[in-house]
Amino acid sequence: MEPSVVFFSGLTASDVWFLTEAAFRTLLISVLSISMGTAIGIFCGWLLYEGKIFATLTLAPILDVFRSVPLIIQLVLFYNMAPILGLNLDPFASGTVILTIYTAALVANVARGGFEAVGLPIRRAARSLGMTYFQDLRYVVLPIGGRAVFPAWIGVALGVMKDSALVSVLGYVELLKASQILITRTQQPFVVLAIAGAFYFALSYPVSRYAAKLEKRWAQ
């Protein structure tokens, strides 16, 4: 006798749309945490550069922790710590907070490298021309140092975009979580994962090629 209930249904066009939506959520959480993390990271990088010994003793070890502990542990830890502190965060908020701090920790080092890439004589020259400290930062350090570390920053940003897949552990339905949901229903892991992988690849590959091209051009 034919079973009257269908447990598993095939992949349909609406499922592909479901994945597309999820890809946008991946993009959303990535863009949000990368932009906030970059802002904080640049500030931390500036502190590391200017605050010499004090920052090296206080800020650097803190940032180091976020680079030496697996992201997934950070996520689980923070997600379980928030209620203890009396915060009521949903997976998206928790994920964004941790991804932001994680990005900031990575960007801080990149930014410090950027500050160090600008020679002191150039900066002294800028100051002697009558520029204020912040004019010097804005018109001298940013263009020169920023250019030096831009490819490295893109590497960090792409890394965070890919690592945002880990937020699925908390239950936020981004691309990878969506693919898992679909696999459970359709029982076609290979096809679904191939589509999800194609989305990630489409998000990451053009940017990484662009960065490689820039790096090559600037190296000349």
Partner: peptide, 18 residues
């Protein structure tokens, strides 16, 4: 280099199950 590690693990774990 262009896909998440977790995706790669899932692929080897579940994808090849197909």
């Amino acid at each position: 280099r262009n896909t998440p590690v977790l995706f790669q693990l899932f692929f080897f774990g579940f994808g090849l199950g197909a």
